[in-house]
Amino acid sequence: MINIGIIGGSGYTAGELLRLLVNHPQAHIDFVYSTTNAGSPVASVHEDLYGTLSLNFIDTVNPNVDVVFLCLGHGKSLSFLQANVFNETTRIIDLGNDFRLAKDVAFNGKTFVYGLPELNREAIKTAQYTANPGCFATAIQLALLPLAKNSLLADTVHINATTGSTGAGVMPSATSHHPWRTNNMSHYKAFGHQHLGEITQSLQLTQQGFNEELLFIPNRGDFTRGIFATLYTTVAADFDDVVELYRAYYKDEPFVKVTTDSISLKLAVQTNNCFISLEQHGRYLLITSVIDNLVKGASGQAIENMNLMFGLDETTGLKLKGTGF
């Protein structure tokens, strides 16, 4: 069994980790850390765990667990690790953005590996520290990596992606307040979203000389979970050849499904899957990519990385099916 600690246990990503880990055959949840809820039952915050998990939140850590998941706010993982020392053999998976970029990967004499399995599977298998990708970054990279792998990204990429309200985190804000969000939609951080850095980094590593513009408009949607992303660009290849190179890139990937049919968000919600649809419209290739922002975009992918790091089948505990209705 893998002994697990979860830091920042009251948020949405931690709640999703717990939902998945309680049914993982090799997982034992050792502690759930939360300074604001210490002493309270975990199920008092994550009510879906009533009758399933009897642990209380604590405000101390067991430094000898096998793996720690950091579910802290962005920018807080580094300071937490500086203040809390874990065993030399403890593996760390950060769900924040502290260690995703090449300039930030070094910590404690070791290196964080970027945790997108479809890009870095072999490196993840031997990693002690893994930086889980962002949710938008996951959906967008999976939409573009096959083109980059075949050096076909040679024009501006236009990206429009809408995320559910859980993407804003558990703490209420003006734009996640239910009366504001319901029957409403808005964009934010247009052309400057923080996930652009890791997306560009991966594309540059995959396609030598990549330097095209990624024009990204993120949107807030009137739903709780999921990301629906549409991307379009010109590609100097026949459409049928493009479809085949996508299928070839993902043929051994358990969680990526490629189709030429239209797709909808509910296919992916509550699963660790990414569905990718390809269409040709005149000279433009249209790519649609849908994921669950809390599963493949966060906690499910973190468990996928844990499975790889501990030599388990990648799909262990993650064979989930969407409802479709």
Rank of each mutant, 00 (worst) to 15 (best):
T52M: 14
D292I: 02
D104Y: 13
H193C: 00
T200I: 08
N160S: 11
V85W: 05
P63W: 10
I92Y: 04
L17N: 00
N211F: 08
A148P: 07
H177A: 10
M1Q: 13
L95I: 06
T316V: 14
L20M: 12
N108D: 05
G51R: 09
E118Q: 13
Y12M: 09
A38R: 04
N273M: 07
K76T: 08
R225D: 03
G317R: 03
E253V: 15
T138N: 10
G317M: 02
V67F: 00
I199D: 01
W180Q: 11
L21G: 04
Q141C: 14
K266P: 05
F191R: 09
L17F: 04
L312D: 09
P179M: 03
P41H: 01
F239D: 02
N97C: 11
F80Y: 10
F69M: 06
K110I: 02
Q128D: 05
L70T: 00
L119C: 10
L144H: 05
T182A: 10
A237L: 14
S44N: 10
V256N: 01
I92P: 03
N62K: 04
L196H: 06
Q26L: 15
S264E: 12
E314I: 11
P117E: 04
G209M: 13
L53A: 00
A190G: 12
N150K: 01
V243L: 10
I291L: 02
T60R: 11
F107S: 05
A168V: 07
R247D: 10
R220D: 11
A43Q: 08
G109F: 11
Q82K: 15
K149D: 14
S34D: 00
A27F: 05
G221A: 08
G96S: 15
T224N: 10
G322Q: 08
D292C: 04
F325E: 14
L231D: 00
T163P: 04
N97D: 13
Q141Y: 04
A143T: 04
Q280S: 12
S262H: 13
Q207G: 01
P254N: 07
T271V: 07
A106V: 15
Q26I: 13
C71F: 06
Y232F: 12
G169M: 05
D241L: 09
I217M: 08
P25H: 14
T52A: 13
E244N: 14
T175I: 12
E244A: 15
Q208W: 11
K76E: 12
T233Q: 05
A83K: 09
H178R: 12
T206H: 03
A237Q: 11
V235M: 01
Y246I: 02
S79A: 12
S262G: 12
G167P: 07
K110S: 14
V68N: 01
R181F: 01
T323V: 13
V42L: 06
T260R: 09
Q208N: 13
I291V: 09
K266C: 06
K319H: 13
T230L: 02
T52S: 12
L320H: 06
